[in-house]
Nucleic acid binder design. Sequence first.
DNA 1: GGGGAGTGAGAGAGCGCTCTCTGGAAGAAT
DNA 2: ATTCTTCCAGAGAGCGCTCTCTCACTCCCC
Lengths: 332, 332
Amino acid sequence: MRARPTLEKVAARAGVSRATASRVVNGSTRVAPEIREAVNRAVDELGYVPNQAARSLVTQRADSIALVFPEPATRVFSEDPTFSGIIRGVSMEIEEADKQLVLMLTGLAGGYQRVERYATNGHVDGVIIASMHGTDPLPGILARRGVPVVCSGRPSVPSSLPYVDMDNVGGAERAVRHLVEQGRRRIATIAGPQDMIAGIDRLNGYRAVLRDSDRRSIVAVGDFTRESGTSAMRQLLADDPELDAVFVANDLMALGALTALRQAGRQVPGDVAIVGFDDIPAASYTEPPLTTVRQPTVEMGRRLARMVLDLEEKAQVMLPTELVVRGSTTTP
Amino acid sequence: MRARPTLEKVAARAGVSRATASRVVNGSTRVAPEIREAVNRAVDELGYVPNQAARSLVTQRADSIALVFPEPATRVFSEDPTFSGIIRGVSMEIEEADKQLVLMLTGLAGGYQRVERYATNGHVDGVIIASMHGTDPLPGILARRGVPVVCSGRPSVPSSLPYVDMDNVGGAERAVRHLVEQGRRRIATIAGPQDMIAGIDRLNGYRAVLRDSDRRSIVAVGDFTRESGTSAMRQLLADDPELDAVFVANDLMALGALTALRQAGRQVPGDVAIVGFDDIPAASYTEPPLTTVRQPTVEMGRRLARMVLDLEEKAQVMLPTELVVRGSTTTP
DNA sequence: GGGGAGTGAGAGAGCGCTCTCTGGAAGAAT
DNA sequence: ATTCTTCCAGAGAGCGCTCTCTCACTCCCC
């Protein structure tokens, strides 16, 4: 491998000074066309690529941003495309801005310190935290340290930190209202973990609609895994065998609930209608296909990236969710 | 935000030279205990974190490695946990080595150039390419440029580049042999794309066993998506209504095939036995649960990372796969 | 024609760090 | 007591780049 050429070499070859070569490489307009031309030719001939470390050292910018996934998230990772959607969205924007994406899956122990150290030493220009738990201390720590931070999901304690959240409450309301409109009387819910904002909000949405429509709420709590959906559904059926609908706080649990309903001999949607949340690919392929609430995950990733890159103002943003009606709540 | 302290500041506070402070920070043993102590105290008090750019500039190392996913991979991403397994494995090793993971999802246009430029300018110490297509030119290009490269999956053109591959042939053979042992006579296959090494190898494994057991092969080709599994299955049923087993080259297509079989009124495993490949989570939850071939994806990620980090010798490695027998091929 | 404005290119000072080289002190060997 | 080792700390030279400052030159207007 030939040694990588330096700006010095390019300048020598083009017969100009290093400073001028730098100007051309960085696209300054204040360079005479013929000189610009000569430098560009030298760059091409030598295959020159700027050394990022040297550049970062003087500019104090890293041209890369970190995307942090706390451990609990990575576990769900495999079956839940929410995260891959966010990654895709973030990646697109980052790529467009010609920056780099550093992915950090914070391990079990010492994950925080690692991210904190990494983020505060000028490695990255900003951090996106795909935190599921609204009480995560990391965003606050980094913000205090002066690192630009944007969170996916609203922190559960009010703060001034920018975030991009999904309209979980609205989505849940629309889902439950849909069940009400279908004439369902006894509408239960399988809620998500109550230490995650998504879990809390979706339950709140459910409660709000039931209150307005004068029905009583029937609640079981799961942990967003398929298995927990199955056992929560069993519990609901035991608690209230007459229930005729269930709003499940995510699709994975809904898949589990579907299994429990089948085992219990309940027809879907005949006996029990079911709505999920997330619109994962599998939701289209269940029998019957699952009515669910779609989230703009890629868009979320894009917005997160644009904010942290300062391409748009850092703010507290709520993205709309959308009800996707399929066979699990209506007969064609 | 207070400015980040430099080594100079730490040295001044500890009353030593910058060189000595550097020695302590980098763990040299040739420093008197009391001085080491003093420096460490200064580091703590000041909250010093080394500036990576400056360090990279002089050491010529980047302390980070890139994980590249070509576009076709990212599309499957969402439903196929193979990639998240690899990411997890890579991430674990990288974290252990205290390096960073740069994730690059190469976009549609100009993805190669971008990765090439990025990797050859000293940004990263090595590149892991999660290439699905064995003909990908990127690994060769980078290797020629002197960048350490390791591929996931064997290149289809023989080369000396190191890779970590799954035993696709062996897995397919075991799967098909399992069908033979179950007394199945007419064993079809839904093959994967024949421009991907996994697709080719799995078909070869199928063919080898059929040849040995004196059966004729019945082949349809899909593209690893669920939909293609459905239509390939329909085609197979049309081609040979008497078939009593099908080996499907991945689970996603197997899920699709299951749908087609159900629609065609075939009992699984009564009329038709079915085996998939990958052991995605959904495979445990189909009705009946899917017999499939499990791949050590996390292990694959680890090995890839260890090789590119030079923690183990770069070689051409084949990881074993494992047949997981479930209800889609046997009745309890 | 002279002075000021404007423009383009070079010189050079660092950015924060590592690492070699040098020097001095202390202990071992003669 | 003197020389030789050994060991540890400091001095200083860069790593490759950006960016300010300076200077030379051209152009224009009065």
